[in-house]
């Protein structure tokens, strides 16, 4: 609060004007480049609009949505995206939590370790995709390791598993998930590290005096402090997973077949492959609705904990 130099009423009005003016540049930009397109996108999604016939712009109501919702392609890409998200979010949180607990300990060389932690974060998504393509593609380093191990596995157990690398839908999809997790771990870790540092050390001392075991200390002391940051990481990584595009573009191109057609890739193909702008906008809207719903669910959970300040 600024000093009370004026009467409350005038002060309040001044506050409003000040806040509005300060937010104006950011608001203008966001409304123009996100708000306006979101509305245009809704409008276009209600029309038949294909760039192959750019003069046709007929109002068709919800027809684009009906077409999509009754189409196998949509449900397939929804399935792929949900799998992608459902696997990568919990694993990202678990791995990041583990690393954060480690790097929160005091030991010599911790600074170097923490600096190295930022490497995956600094690698752009496209480079990440190309990198895993190299690692898991034909003649890649990881590819060789895996196929050698499969051979050994087959020999030992007498099984006959044929490892065909990225040509296999299962391998390709899970490779994309692994690459995505690798890139997203550092950011989650940064948040967890900060949260761990915020835990008052007296509480640990007290718990230790009470004779609580390491596991008990983690469960009853550390974990409750981490619930809020875990939720924030969950929100951010869910959104990231649901809109993943650059990684898929560089790593699999949606293939093999349609094994890695995540929803963002499907939308991109609808717009720039088939030039069906009406349909693509309906896709866009469905994605927005899904991510918004997920965000609202998370935010509600967050607020129920009563730990976010306005």
């Amino acid at each position: 609060m600024p000093p009370k130099l004026r009467s409350d009423h005038i002060q309040q009005r001044a506050n409003h004007v000040f806040a509005l003016v300060m937010n104006l540049p950011a608001l203008t930009l966001i409304l123009l480049l996100i708000g306006y397109p979101v509305i245009v996108s809704l409008w276009t999604s209600l029309h038949r609009y294909n760039l192959r016939r750019p003069d046709t712009f007929d109002f068709v109501g919800l027809m684009n949505y009906v077409t999509i919702l009754t189409n196998h392609d949509f449900w397939h890409s929804i399935g792929v995206s949900f799998y992608f998200t459902a696997v990568s979010v919990p694993l990202t949180i678990l791995i990041a939590l583990g690393i954060a607990l480690l790097f929160n300990q005091e030991f010599t060389g911790r600074g170097v370790f923490r600096a190295l932690l930022l490497i995956p974060w600094a690698v752009p998504g496209v480079v990440n995709g190309l990198m895993w393509m190299g690692l898991l593609g034909k003649h890649g380093a990881f590819d060789t390791i895996i196929s050698n191990n499969i051979e050994l596995f087959n020999k030992l157990l007498g099984t006959n598993i044929d490892y065909i690398g990225m040509a296999s839908p299962v391998v390709a999809l899970n490779a994309a998930v692994a690459a995505h997790i690798w890139k997203n771990v550092p950011f989650a870790c940064i948040i967890f590290l900060a949260a761990l540092q915020g835990i008052p050390s007296e509480q640990y001392r007290a718990a230790r005096i009470d004779g609580a075991s390491t596991w008990k200390r983690f469960l009853h002391l550390t974990l409750p402090w981490l619930l809020h940051p875990i939720m924030i990481v969950a929100i951010l990584t869910t959104m990231n997973s649901f809109r993943v595009f650059d990684l898929i573009f560089a790593l699999t191109g949606g293939g093999p077949g349609d094994a890695t057609y995540v929803i963002a890739w499907q939308t991109y193909k609808e717009a720039f492959g088939r030039l069906n702008f009406g349909g693509a906008n309906a896709y866009s809207y469905l994605i927005t609705i899904i991510t918004m719903t997920l965000a609202i669910v998370y935010i509600r959970l967050l607020y129920r904990r009563g730990s976010v300040q306005g």
Binding site: I34, V40, S41, T44, A264, T267, A271, N281, S284, T291
Partner: peptide
């Protein structure tokens, strides 16, 4: 998501 508003 960026892809949701790419066309407009």
């Amino acid at each position: 998501p960026g892809v949701a508003i790419m066309v407009p």
